[in-house]
């Protein structure tokens, strides 16, 4: 029963996310590259997207800290790692290059699949291949299973799960 409710909640959240992306202009790679183009005609509208998103997301996070657990599940599944390490920096750097070349990050690219446009399909398939390649790495440096909640974080009643952000 609650599994069905969780799926319904996730469907609604995904739909709102996709609507937000469409409304915000983030679906448009030309606009995203305009935001990254600080040396050109810098389009700072994406600052408003991120600002609005982080503000509401922060309110949700602060509220979650007052709860024992999520409404439809048993625990908050939050990232367990706190150390800034080489895979994090190197991975983020590679992602940024791909983002700059295409103007696509994962959310907008997946949402844009609904247009069934060939360039979007090519990007998303390549992205899935890239993800699969990472999965093939021996002893994946992400260390899913050996994540240890080191540095004290957000209180002991919050489960330290295996979530990656």
């Amino acid at each position: 029963m609650s599994a069905a409710l969780r799926s319904l909640a996730a469907l609604a959240a995904g739909l709102i996310f996709g609507l937000g992306l469409a409304l915000s202009g983030m679906l448009d790679p030309a606009r995203v590259r305009g935001f990254l183009d600080v040396a050109g005609a810098w389009d700072l509208s994406l600052v408003f997207v991120l600002g609005g998103a982080v503000t509401v997301s922060r309110l949700g996070y602060l509220l979650s800290r007052r709860l024992r657990g999520p409404v439809l599940d048993t625990r908050f599944d939050l990232p367990a790692r706190h150390r800034i390490d080489a895979p994090l920096i190197f991975g983020a750097a590679l992602f940024g290059i791909g983002w700059g070349v295409s103007g696509f990050c994962p959310g907008p690219a997946v949402a844009a699949l609904s247009t069934a446009a060939a360039p979007v399909l090519v990007f998303v398939v390549a992205m899935l291949v890239g993800m699969a390649l990472h999965g093939l790495l021996p002893a994946a440096p992400m260390g899913r299973s050996r994540s240890i909640g080191t540095a004290g974080g957000s209180g002991n009643r919050r489960a330290r799960g295996s979530a990656s952000t």
Binding site: A13, M26, V49, T55, L63, L72, T74, D77
Partner: peptide, 26 residues
């Protein structure tokens, strides 16, 4: 529109966390 879209994206992330305990990382 960018601000309103951003607010919706944030709402989605807050919903997924508060209801399902999940991070909205695509």
């Amino acid at each position: 529109p960018p601000l309103a879209g951003g607010l919706l994206i944030g709402l989605s992330a807050a919903m997924l966390l508060l209801l399902n305990g999940r991070i909205a990382g695509i």
